Amino acid sequence: TFTSYQLEELEKVFQKTHYPDVYAREQLAMRTDLTEARVQVWFQNRRA
C-alpha cells in the first residue's frame, strides 16, 4: 500500500506523462522512498 503523499507524487507525474523514463522513475522513487521497480509497476497498473 502507498501513503497519500506517495500517491499524490505518483499521480502528479502520471498527469505529465504515462511513460516516465528511467531517470524520472528514479527521481520519483527517491522522493517517495519507494524502489524504482515499485514505481515502474505502479505506472504499468495505472495505465492498464
Rank of each mutant, 00 (worst) to 15 (best):
T1F: 11
T1K: 12
T1H: 14
T1G: 13
T1R: 13
T1A: 14
T1W: 14
T1P: 14
T1L: 13
T1E: 15
T1Q: 13
F2Y: 12
F2S: 11
F2K: 02
F2P: 03
F2Q: 02
F2H: 03
F2R: 01
F2M: 10
T3N: 09
T3W: 06
T3R: 04
T3Q: 06
T3L: 07
T3K: 06
T3E: 07
T3S: 11
T3A: 06
T3M: 05
S4N: 11
S4F: 10
S4A: 15
S4Y: 08
S4H: 14
S4M: 12
S4V: 14
Y5A: 04
Y5W: 12
Y5V: 07
Y5D: 10
Y5T: 07
Y5M: 08
Q6G: 01
Q6H: 02
Q6T: 02
Q6I: 04
Q6N: 02
L7I: 12
L7S: 07
L7E: 10
L7M: 10
L7N: 09
L7R: 06
L7G: 03
L7V: 12
L7W: 08
L7T: 08
E8R: 11
E8S: 11
E8C: 15
E8H: 10
E8D: 14
E8M: 12
E8W: 08
E8I: 09
E8N: 10
E8V: 11
E8Q: 12
E8F: 09
E8L: 11
E9W: 06
E9Q: 10
E9M: 11
E9D: 03
E9T: 04
E9Y: 04
L10A: 01
L10N: 00
L10P: 00
L10K: 14
L10Y: 01
L10R: 00
L10M: 10
L10Q: 01
E11T: 03
E11A: 02
E11D: 04
E11C: 02
E11F: 04
E11H: 03
E11Q: 04
E11G: 02
E11V: 08
K12V: 05
K12N: 06
K12E: 08
K12W: 07
K12C: 05
K12D: 04
K12F: 04
V13D: 02
V13F: 10
V13N: 02
V13Q: 09
V13T: 09
V13A: 13
F14M: 01
F14I: 08
F14W: 15
F14R: 01
F14V: 01
F14C: 01
F14Y: 14
Q15E: 12
Q15S: 12
Q15I: 09
Q15H: 07
Q15W: 07
Q15V: 07
Q15T: 07
Q15A: 15
Q15P: 00
K16M: 13
K16G: 07
K16Y: 11
K16P: 04
K16S: 11
K16N: 08
K16I: 11
K16T: 13
K16L: 14
K16Q: 12
K16F: 12
T17E: 07
T17M: 10
T17D: 08
T17F: 07
T17N: 14
T17S: 12
T17I: 05
T17W: 07
T17Y: 07
T17L: 06
T17A: 06
T17P: 00
H18R: 15
H18Q: 10
H18K: 12
H18I: 07
H18Y: 06
H18A: 14
H18E: 08
H18L: 06
H18M: 13
H18T: 08
H18G: 03
H18V: 06
Y19A: 04
Y19I: 04
Y19S: 05
Y19E: 05
Y19W: 14
Y19G: 02
Y19T: 06
Y19H: 08
P20K: 05
P20Q: 02
P20G: 02
P20Y: 05
P20R: 01
P20E: 02
P20L: 04
P20S: 01
P20I: 05
D21Q: 04
D21T: 08
D21R: 03
D21L: 03
D21K: 04
D21M: 02
D21S: 12
D21H: 05
D21I: 02
D21Y: 02
D21F: 13
V22H: 13
V22W: 11
V22S: 12
V22L: 15
V22P: 08
V22R: 15
V22K: 15
V22D: 11
V22T: 14
Y23M: 13
Y23Q: 10
Y23F: 10
Y23T: 09
Y23H: 12
Y23K: 14
Y23I: 14
Y23G: 08
Y23L: 12
Y23E: 10
Y23N: 14
A24I: 13
A24W: 08
A24K: 05
A24G: 05
A24Y: 07
A24S: 08
A24T: 15
A24M: 15
A24F: 07
A24C: 09
R25M: 15
R25F: 10
R25V: 15
R25Y: 08
R25E: 03
R25Q: 06
R25C: 08
R25G: 02
R25L: 15
R25H: 03
R25D: 00
E26G: 08
E26D: 07
E26R: 15
E26Q: 14
E26W: 12
E26M: 13
E26P: 02
E26L: 13
E26A: 11
Q27K: 10
Q27V: 10
Q27G: 06
Q27C: 07
Q27E: 14
Q27Y: 08
Q27M: 09
Q27F: 11
L28E: 00
L28I: 09
L28W: 00
L28K: 00
L28N: 00
L28G: 00
L28C: 04
L28Q: 01
L28D: 02
L28T: 02
L28R: 14
L28V: 08
A29F: 03
A29S: 08
A29T: 06
A29N: 07
A29G: 07
A29L: 05
A29C: 08
A29R: 06
A29D: 12
M30E: 11
M30V: 11
M30C: 07
M30R: 09
M30Y: 13
M30A: 09
M30K: 14
M30H: 11
M30P: 00
R31Q: 10
R31I: 14
R31S: 07
R31V: 11
R31G: 04
R31D: 05
R31H: 05
R31P: 00
R31M: 12
R31L: 14
R31W: 07
T32C: 09
T32M: 09
T32H: 03
T32N: 04
T32K: 01
T32V: 14
T32L: 14
T32G: 02
T32W: 15
T32I: 15
D33Y: 09
D33S: 13
D33L: 10
D33H: 14
D33R: 11
D33I: 15
D33T: 07
D33P: 05
D33N: 15
D33K: 10
L34N: 02
L34F: 01
L34I: 04
L34E: 01
L34D: 01
L34K: 01
L34Q: 03
L34C: 03
T35R: 03
T35N: 08
T35I: 03
T35K: 04
T35P: 07
T35Y: 03
T35W: 03
T35S: 12
T35E: 07
T35A: 04
E36I: 09
E36W: 07
E36K: 05
E36P: 11
E36C: 05
E36V: 14
E36S: 08
E36N: 06
E36D: 08
E36L: 11
A37I: 11
A37M: 13
A37W: 13
A37N: 09
A37T: 07
A37S: 11
A37P: 08
A37G: 10
A37F: 12
R38Q: 15
R38W: 12
R38V: 11
R38H: 09
R38P: 00
R38F: 11
R38E: 15
R38K: 13
R38L: 15
R38S: 13
R38D: 15
R38M: 15
R38C: 11
R38G: 08
V39C: 01
V39K: 00
V39S: 06
V39H: 00
V39A: 00
V39L: 07
V39W: 02
V39N: 01
V39Y: 01
Q40H: 14
Q40L: 12
Q40T: 13
Q40Y: 12
Q40G: 05
Q40P: 01
Q40C: 10
Q40W: 07
V41H: 13
V41T: 12
V41Q: 15
V41A: 15
V41I: 14
W42D: 00
W42R: 00
W42M: 06
W42H: 01
W42C: 00
W42V: 09
W42G: 00
W42F: 04
W42E: 01
W42P: 01
W42K: 01
W42I: 04
W42N: 01
F43C: 00
F43H: 00
F43I: 02
F43G: 00
F43R: 00
F43L: 04
F43D: 00
F43W: 01
F43Q: 00
F43S: 00
F43V: 01
F43K: 00
F43M: 04
Q44S: 13
Q44R: 07
Q44V: 10
Q44L: 07
Q44Y: 10
Q44N: 08
Q44F: 09
Q44E: 15
Q44G: 04
Q44H: 12
Q44P: 03
Q44A: 13
N45G: 08
N45W: 06
N45E: 14
N45Q: 12
N45D: 12
N45L: 15
N45T: 08
N45A: 14
N45K: 13
N45P: 01
N45C: 07
N45M: 13
N45R: 15
R46G: 02
R46Y: 02
R46D: 02
R46N: 03
R46S: 03
R46C: 00
R46I: 02
R46W: 03
R46K: 10
R47D: 03
R47C: 05
R47E: 03
R47G: 03
R47L: 09
R47P: 03
R47T: 04
A48M: 13
A48V: 11
A48D: 12
A48H: 12
A48S: 10
A48Y: 10
A48P: 04
A48W: 09
